[in-house]
Write a protein that binds this DNA or RNA. Structure first.
Lengths: 190, 190
DNA sequence: CTTGAACCGGAGGTGTGCCTCCGCTAGAGT
DNA sequence: ACTCTAGCGGAGGCACACCTCCGGTTCAAG
């Protein structure tokens, strides 16, 4: 199984040194802006944050959707990497460790998912990568009797995504609530 | 314990027949628009949906915040009523019945909460009303041994709010995931 | 060092939303 | 029926976001 996401991202990145720097700055600024203002964040503000002209933004990302896709893809890329890192842990620990990273990812990504409907080709590829990376962790936990069998990986992701996308009083509360919900997942099937 | 929210809402509502009708239409249109476009929904679009001039919107709700507060308050009002209705059921059933209604409420309300920070006086009053209405249901379930005791009502609301605010493939998936998370809540404390 | 291609910034035209202001309309009290 | 006042609609000025276009700049290959 290959993960085409990385290649798609890389293919957009310009070759010249200054151009590449601008590209990265725009991606970071966009990630930040989308997390802060949601899908409707101002493109001119993103260019300002990145310290580049608005023209540069449009050359790299002709449409808002292009920007979404790139930000999203680069994050999915990282999550796929994490899945490989945690594969050596015990089944339940591996799963929850990955989900913890998924949490951090989801906080920023709420806006992107809100704007990117499933039509997008890149979105499809990213989702497949995600499932290919995290799915086995869940199945392993199921086989080890550590996760209930009357739910699937998609259910789990939705659950974690929902909980982590909400505003909590502090991180401790978020972790507590997440742990409680995961207790529901760990329940053995009746 | 009184719930001042209803009075606040009522106090805004104009006395004249046509004016009251416009007020209601604006509230409904705003609820719809906020659910659809989030907190940044266009006020002119809301006036259009309601079939009134933009001036009428501004006379009734001088600021965007006023509109948020009114929509939010009217919804909280309804939830408080539901809590009284379900009070006669068994502890766990009463709690989950109320949370199911909370779900429907939350889908629409995500946008409002996103825009209304805790400074708002009305928001404070609403939150108190919510806790006063739903809190006892949770405590009753705890005392009956049906809900774990190492979490509080706020944790529970955040959890349900998070899960229900997310996009699911269908209602069945949402219910399934919610039920799993609630299994975590029902777990007895170790 | 030279050179040309790739890249840059931002001015500016267009569209849309925000909010105010005021001449007109229609409900409510007599 | 009459009045008078609360309420109405939307034109218009301002601000800001979107996106295009092009003269100037900078990298990197030879």
């Amino acid at each position: 199984m290959t993960f085409p996401v990385g290649e798609i991202v890389a293919s957009r990145r310009p070759h010249r040194k200054d151009a590449a720097r601008n590209y990265d700055a725009l991606l970071d600024a966009a990630r930040e802006a989308f997390a802060e203002h949601g899908a409707e964040a101002s493109l001119e503000d993103i260019a300002r944050r990145a310290g580049v002209g608005i023209g540069t933004l449009y050359r790299n990302f002709p449409t808002r959707r292009d920007l979404f896709e790139s930000v999203y893809a680069s994050d999915v890329n990282e999550l796929v990497g994490v899945a490989q890192e945690v594969a050596a842990l015990e089944p339940w620990e591996a799963l929850t460790a990955w989900l913890r990273r998924f949490t951090g990812y989801m906080v920023t990504k709420r806006a992107v998912r809100e704007a990117l409907n499933d039509e997008s080709e890149i979105f499809q590829a990213c989702r497949e990568s995600m499932y290919a990376a995290g799915g086995p962790l869940f199945e392993r936990a199921q086989e080890a009797g550590e996760a209930r069998k009357d739910m699937d990986f998609v259910d789990l992701l939705r659950m974690v995504a929902g909980i982590t996308a909400t505003a909590f009083d502090d991180d401790a509360q978020r972790d507590r609530v997440l742990a409680i919900a995961l207790d529901g997942v760990r329940t053995t099937v009746r």
